[in-house]
């Protein structure tokens, strides 16, 4: 039995008649960096949203460290509309809220950066620690959790210095340049002490040099924080550089998977990205 941290099984996501994810199966093993690539609108972010519990899939299961965190089957209106296969394979609905899943050890960043705009960099990271707070409201308000509070603050200082964000610690998070904001998002995700880190297009809007730095950075935090990393990305350079394995998604369907070299030479992947000429299609 392989040690998979994340296992997505037969996940289908259908918005009305539109199938955003079509029977997707994938696995991410402990310590790996796995990427998911695909053209715009292929359903990559939807996959993240299903894994993190933002919305329930129409059908399918997601396991995290062997525990079911998401399960659903076509119900209500979807019963009639459901198109893909595996209908009737599941009969339970498990809908953990995103915060529960985060506390279990799955953290994410957002494609369109979602930092808390009125807070400083340090506060952004510190607030992410809130989900590990054990003190109740009263003891927190009356300062009876001093030890915990101090420990958390120290951890945040440490985290920021590891990520090279010490200098901007007291700046408003949203006043930083784009690349640094992405870094703060990663710092914030790390502050929740995840085992699995989901990065949603971390290199979007970065120049080649920044992208290279990011690749090194991701590899480093994987070893430093003993992480498993799952990335959605457009930038081929980044993906090919650091991924152990790659999944390719097109129109909601997985069309290929394998090592970077395998994927690079896969005809279907090339077709999906470059388009297929008329006669080849027929």
């Amino acid at each position: 039995m392989s040690d998979n941290v994340l296992k997505v099984e037969n996940v289908t996501m259908q918005f009305g008649g539109v199938v955003a994810l079509n029977n997707v199966n994938l696995e991410v093993n402990r310590g790996e960096i796995v990427s998911m690539i695909g053209p715009n609108g292929a359903g990559k972010t939807t996959a993240f949203n299903v894994i993190t519990g933002v919305y329930p899939p129409t059908n399918g299961v997601v396991y995290f460290e062997g525990k079911k965190i998401v399960e659903n089957y076509p119900r209500g209106k979807m019963k009639k509309l459901y198109k893909p296969e595996n209908d009737g394979a599941y009969t339970h609905a498990i809908e953990l809220t995103p915060d529960t899943i985060t506390r279990m050890g799955v953290a994410r960043t957002f494609q369109n950066i979602r930092l808390w705009s009125s807070q400083t960099v340090f506060e952004n990271v510190l607030i992410a620690k809130h989900c590990r707070v054990t003190a109740g409201l009263l003891s927190a308000a009356f300062g009876m959790n001093k030890l915990e509070e101090r420990r958390q603050r120290e951890e945040c200082y440490e985290l920021l210095s590891i990520l090279g964000l010490e200098e901007v610690r007291d700046d408003l998070a949203t006043s930083l340049p784009y690349g640094q904001q992405r870094r703060v998002e990663i710092a914030r995700a790390l502050a929740t002490q995840p085992k699995l880190l989901l990065l949603d297009e971390p290199a979007a809007g970065m120049n080649p040099q920044e992208t290279q730095e990011l690749a090194a950075f991701i590899s480093r935090i994987r070893t430093d924080f003993k992480l498993t990393v799952f990335i959605i990305e457009h930038h081929m350079d980044l993906v090919m550089d650091i991924s152990d394995r790659i999944y390719v998604l097109d129109f909601g369907k997985l069309i290929a998977s394998g090592t970077p070299a395998e994927v690079q030479n896969n005809q279907r992947v090339i077709d999906a990205y470059l388009g297929v000429s008329e006669d080849a299609e027929n």
Binding site: T52, V54, T97, P98, D99, T102, R103, A107, R108, F110, R114, L115, W116, S117, S118, Q119, I127, A128, H130, C131, R132, R188, A189, A191, T192
Partner: peptide, 11 residues
């Protein structure tokens, strides 16, 4: 500031 981010960060 951002409800969705807050929920994603375990709140």
């Amino acid at each position: 500031d951002d409800e969705i981010a807050a929920e994603a960060m375990g709140i």
